[in-house]
């Protein structure tokens, strides 16, 4: 590892310094300094992450009422597996599958095109694709709400009418509700994912393309056999974070329907936590949903670590 540089080359350094008070000397010794640097983070980390995480797991076995906390065993988990939760889980899973496939395939294609030497104005293209990531989900969602309004005068329906199709009540059908959430996510994250793939494309050795050209490989063969293998690590990374962020989705739904959508078409797992834990103040129940969400995310992260070979190499 790079960090193993010779810090201890000059053991006399301390004695060469002007004399100091013993406390200062202690605080300045290389044995102590790193711990001082690390401690503010550790403390905040313990208080604000580790403690709540453990507390959350404990809470999921409790019924939490104001001034009265009882252990109820697995009762919360028993209640979690109900039709509403399955609805939320199904919605979230569909959303994950759609966003992950779109946000992986489309950025790869666009990154390869953007990377080719025939494209002019690269910086402008890249910047404009990235721009949507700057808008908050709320602002982006508001624009989408107004563009996908129910009236014939809203942009999306105008377009459909011009194409000779019927207007759609975007926010009131299961399929179109899902479409809205997926589109919102894709619009905001496309540019960011393109950047990941663009960065990875820079690692492909140019000689390989030349060699493939000499062998008479077509564009698609070059892409398949030369480019794609180099994109594998970043693809695993992008897929993993997209799955995790997809399971954590809340805002994309909230911005269209606030707390309640017709027939729960927009209910997500986190939305269900918010509804039960915060709005209904049933924190134990909310925590149980949270623990299930955490397990899902752990499993996905674990699969990613296996795929990237993190366990084989041992370090990093």
């Amino acid at each position: 590892m790079k960090t193993d540089h010779n810090l201890a080359t000059n053991p006399n350094v301390a004695t060469q310094k002007p004399p100091r008070k013993p406390l200062m000397k202690f605080l300045n010794s290389k044995k102590v300094v790193p711990y001082i640097f690390v401690s503010p983070f550790i403390i905040s980390f313990l208080v604000l992450t580790v403690y709540p995480a453990i507390r959350g797991i404990i809470m999921s076995f409790q019924s939490v009422l104001p001034g009265q906390v009882n252990f109820v065993g697995l009762a919360n988990y028993d209640r979690v597996f109900n039709p509403t939760f399955y609805k939320a889980l199904t919605n979230t899973t569909i959303y994950v599958i759609l966003t992950v496939s779109i946000l992986t395939i489309l950025p790869i294609i666009l990154a390869v095109i953007l990377d080719s030497r025939f494209i002019k104005l690269k910086t402008i293209f890249r910047a404009s694709l990235f721009m949507p990531a700057l808008a908050s989900t709320i602002v982006a969602g508001m624009i989408f709400r107004l563009m996908f309004g129910e009236t014939d005068t809203a942009a999306a329906n105008q377009l459909l009418n011009w194409l000779g199709m019927e207007s759609v009540d975007w926010k009131f059908n299961a399929w179109s509700g899902m479409f809205l959430m997926v589109m919102l996510c894709v619009w905001r994250w496309l540019g960011v994912n393109i950047l990941y793939f663009l960065a990875a494309l820079q690692t492909v050795p140019k000689e390989l393309y030349e060699a493939a050209e000499i062998d008479g490989a077509s564009i698609f063969k070059k892409f398949w056999y030369v480019t794609l293998p180099f994109l594998k690590p970043v693809t695993i990374f992008v897929v993993t974070i997209s799955i995790i962020n997809g399971f954590r989705m809340f805002e994309e739904s909230f911005v269209f329907w606030e707390a309640g959508s017709p027939g729960n078409i927009g209910l997500t797992v986190v939305g269900y936590i918010y509804q039960q834990g915060i709005q209904q103040n049933d924190m134990g129940f909310g925590a149980a949903i949270g623990v299930i969400l955490m397990l899902i995310i752990f499993i996905i992260s674990f699969i990613q670590l296996v795929l990237t070979g993190a366990f084989k190499r041992g370090d990093e």
Partner: peptide, 12 residues
């Protein structure tokens, strides 16, 4: 700990 989603920390 980085893998722990904020949503589980949120209620505590």
């Amino acid at each position: 700990i980085l893998m722990v989603p904020f949503e589980i920390l949120m209620l505590p």
